[in-house]
């Protein structure tokens, strides 16, 4: 409850100056952008990501999980800065949460690799602290809501004819998937970066951010369920236009 109250107060504090804007002097639009208070911006972002699939394999010690470094992240952003040093930012991001799993079959050299390619829509809402003028540093933290949109598996399995390759899209509409897969993604996000004004109203930046999933990717469908989480590191650049 206290956290919710704190966030509410922050939001109110952010919007109060905007309501008061009418009684202030008109803004000079050709002044350096980063010096302005109370402005909106929109932008696009894109980058690469690296997902860490967190799972405890216990006695299944021939299974090993590792990040798969071919993920990408791209999206749009909307932000409002009530103060020079404070920005409220909302993103709509499509990002990959891929991972690689290997299973070296016990007592043999036979390997059953599996790469899972997952596409997520994440909507992070963060509060960002900025320092600097033309070149600014920023750090941010917040939460995100997301949706697991697609999943594809590629690898090798043990069929009755021997080892068999597969490359298939997961059908979330099957009864098994509807019982097993938790397609809602909620978690924390934080990070920091660097941005600079390249032209009036236009700013470019780079940043690193962590998405820390708090929801198990599985529904709670069985006793002693072994939870599985995604933690995703994103390096991205972006360009934004300030109103």
């Amino acid at each position: 409850m206290n956290k919710r109250l704190f966030l509410l107060l922050l939001l109110v504090a952010a919007f109060v100056p905007m309501w008061a804007q009418e009684v202030e002097a008109p803004m000079q639009l050709d002044e350096p952008t980063v010096e302005r208070n109370r402005h909106w911006s929109v932008g696009v972002t894109g980058g690469i990501d690296r997902n860490y699939h967190i799972i405890n394999m216990s006695y299944m010690n021939e299974y090993s999980y590792s990040p798969f470094a071919e993920g990408s992240s791209y999206g749009v952003q909307l932000s409002f800065s009530p103060l020079k040093w404070l920005t409220l930012r909302v993103d709509g991001v499509m990002l990959d949460k891929n991972y690689y799993r290997d299973h070296v079959v016990g007592g043999t050299t036979m390997s059953l690799p599996d790469t899972t390619y997952n596409k997520y829509l994440n909507v992070p809402v963060v509060l960002m602290l900025n320092v600097g003028k033309t070149v600014r540093l920023h750090a941010f933290g917040g939460g995100y809501w997301g949706r697991w949109l697609e999943s594809r598996r590629k690898g090798i399995t043990q069929g009755m004819n021997g080892l068999v390759s597969y490359d298939e899209t997961v059908d979330f509409d099957t009864p098994e998937s509807q019982v097993r897969d938790n397609r809602t993604d909620v978690g924390l996000v934080w990070g920091g970066g660097l941005s600079g004004v390249v032209k009036k109203r236009i700013e470019i930046g780079v940043e690193a951010r962590w998405y820390y999933g708090l929801y198990d990717i599985q529904q709670d469908y069985m006793a002693h369920l072994n939870p599985r989480y995604n933690t995703t590191l994103v390096f991205q650049g972006g360009i934004s236009y300030w109103f």
């Binding site: 394999m57 216990s58 299944m60 299974y63 299973h103 599996d114 598996r153 399995t157 043990q158 069929g159 009755m160 004819n161 068999v164 597969y166 298939e168 098994e176 019982v179 097993r180 599985q218 469908y221 069985m222 369920l225 072994n226």
Partner: peptide
């Protein structure tokens, strides 16, 4: 077509593969 268990979860399976 066949599939095998592939993990701790009761519904963790490999994809289906053809048996010929």
């Amino acid at each position: 077509y066949t599939r095998v268990k592939d993990g701790f979860g009761r519904l963790d399976y490999s994809p289906w593969s053809e048996y010929r």
